[in-house]
């Protein structure tokens, strides 16, 4: 004989309350997601990952730079394959994106004439030409072939160069090869330890 189901209000309420306990209900139903949410994907999904390096301290953490098909930098993360860094980055390394894509960067060649009160923008080639001319003029004026004691020096102390620890070995190689061949001996960087 069928009996009319009775509604036990107490148990319904208790079940409802229990239902709020997520821990007992996880996975029971699919998560609610809008169409828009379903269309979203990770910002680096499908992006090319280029292996690069952290430019700060000398630990040499390996990084992965994620680049879109259009060549736009999307993100920079630690490279888990590196035996040195194992995917980790410190705050500086984690902010490589902000150092690279940054409105404050100066990305044009500039010139400031003697006594001028402002910089002016100039084409890169113009600036390089002018530097080479100034370099030659100073070298001609200050080149010393022999010291007063007769010893050959073939150098100039009128030109100096500072920097090296923040850029690559190939760049250091060209810089010192050029400078020393021109007779510039005060070629230095912060590695003086």
């Amino acid at each position: 004989m069928a009996t009319k189901p009775t509604i036990d209000l107490t148990s319904v309420l208790a079940n409802a309350v229990r239902g709020l306990r997520l821990s007992e209900r996880v996975g029971a139903l699919p998560n609610v997601a809008s169409k828009r949410t379903r269309a979203l994907k990770g910002r680096v999904k499908g992006a090319k990952a280029v292996v690069s390096l952290c430019p700060y301290c000398a630990v040499g953490c390996s990084t992965l730079a994620y680049v879109s098909d259009e060549g736009k930098l999307l993100d920079v993360e630690g490279n888990p394959d590196s035996p040195v860094s194992g995917g980790h980055l410190c705050p500086k390394g984690s902010a490589i994106f902000g150092m690279t894509v940054n409105e404050a960067r100066w990305t044009t060649a500039k010139y400031r004439a003697p006594f001028a009160t402002e910089w002016e923008e100039k084409p890169l080639d113009w600036v390089l030409d002018r530097i080479a001319e100034r370099f030659k003029k100073t070298r001609e004026e200050t080149f010393v072939r022999n010291l007063p004691n007769g010893k050959r020096v073939n150098h100039t102390l009128g030109i100096a160069s500072l920097g090296g620890a923040t850029f690559g070995i190939e760049e250091n190689y060209l810089l010192q090869k050029l400078m020393k061949t021109c007779g510039v001996v005060s070629v230095e960087n912060q590695a003086r330890i």
């Binding site: 430019p55 000398a58 040499g60 920097g163 250091n172 810089l175 010192q176 960087n189 590695a191």
Partner: peptide, 12 residues
């Protein structure tokens, strides 16, 4: 610095 050893080995 990232290349301070390198800038000593290939010395600037």
């Amino acid at each position: 610095h990232a290349n301070i050893q390198g800038a000593t080995d290939i010395p600037t």
